[in-house]
């Protein structure tokens, strides 16, 4: 869903138990050094460079001038930016619960041991994760066609008149569908793995109390995998806020519905690549990064506090 890397894990708030006092030394750097060095080169340096760029303005005519925080002022009053942010927020509020809900239900079904052919389900539902976003979107794009795609085929085969999935009213839902398809198995697997390692003694206790299946789910399973739920939610928030690949690849099929400022990330892309407005693009990206961090942090605080 994101462009550079797989979604990242949650902040390590419940940090691993501290290592022993006497080993506090620089030895650890010998191990983490290489990671930090490459990370500094490919993440930190461009970010620092972007922050620097965000203080300037360059023009086709007239060159570059220092403008202080003017770009930030402009971005905070930029309707296009806020509209894009609103769109991904809506996406986040609808698509993420649906995706995580399906993933959780499937994970619980798998874990319940009541399915025939469990490993078949586990692997087939996970498969879409292996499909590159480029291929997934091309594929769905072909299928969304109302004339010759799958939608068109259904219409002509059954005499239906399904609405155009790429019309302005539906295109966000269609993008949501692609994202859900790509990541439902991935999230299912995270939940399922968490369920698999719930200490068995808890179930035995529940059995003695005569708790039913549903009670076991709500009282034992869900609280036990709360960490996994929070992690998956945070991945999904970052993914939603950075939504880009899917609308970008789908745009040639729906140019009027998917505008060049459709999502914040798409907006920074257009600013930078169509408009050559690198400075303003960097500004919007930094603001977006800050917003993402704050939201992710709040979700984590809330998720961890609840019932703790």
């Amino acid at each position: 869903m994101t462009t550079l890397q797989p979604p990242v894990a949650a902040e390590p708030r419940p940090a691993p138990p501290p290592a022993r006092r006497d080993r506090r030394s620089w030895t650890g750097w010998g191990f983490i050094g290489p990671f930090v060095a490459v990370f500094a080169l490919v993440f930190l340096a461009p970010i620092v460079y972007s922050i620097y760029l965000s203080l300037f303005r360059d023009q086709l005519i007239g060159g570059t001038t220092f403008v202080g925080f003017d770009n930030y002022e402009q971005a905070l009053q930029d309707d296009r930016f806020w509209a894009a942010l609103g769109r991904v927020a809506l996406f986040l509020c609808i698509q993420v619960p649906i995706m995580l809900g399906i993933a959780l239900l499937v994970a619980l079904a798998l874990d319940s041991g009541r399915l025939y052919g469990k490993s078949f389900f586990r692997i087939t539902i996970f498969l879409p994760y292996a499909v590159p976003a480029v291929v997934a979107t091309l594929m769905w794009g072909f299928m969304y066609g109302t004339k010759y795609g799958l939608v068109g085929d259904f219409n002509s085969a059954f005499g239906w008149s399904l609405p155009d999935p790429l019309s302005p009213d539906l295109v966000l839902a269609s993008i949501g569908n692609i994202v859900t398809w790509e990541f439902v198995g991935y999230n299912m697997l995270i939940f399922y793995s968490a369920l698999r390692v719930i200490p068995h003694s808890l179930y035995e206790a529940a059995e003695i109390d005569g708790a039913g299946q549903w009670r076991v789910v709500t009282a034992i399973k869900l609280p036990a995998i709360r960490g996994a739920l929070v992690i998956a939610t945070i991945f999904s928030i970052i993914g939603s806020f950075q939504l880009f690949n899917e609308p970008n690849i789908l745009r040639p099929l729906a140019r009027n519905a998917i505008t060049t400022d459709y999502t914040p990330n798409f907006y920074t892309y257009s600013l930078s690549f169509s408009g050559q407005q690198h400075n303003y693009s960097a500004t919007v990206a930094i603001i977006m990064g800050l917003i993402t961090m704050v939201v992710a942090y709040l979700v984590q605080l809330r998720g961890m506090r609840k019932g703790a």
Binding site: P12, S272, A282
Partner: peptide
């Protein structure tokens, strides 16, 4: 790790040109 998370939250498309 906090730095790593913070960095990942910045949209990559805008970092591409730098």
């Amino acid at each position: 790790f906090a730095t790593v998370i913070g960095a990942v939250a910045v949209p990559g498309t805008a970092l591409a040109v730098p």
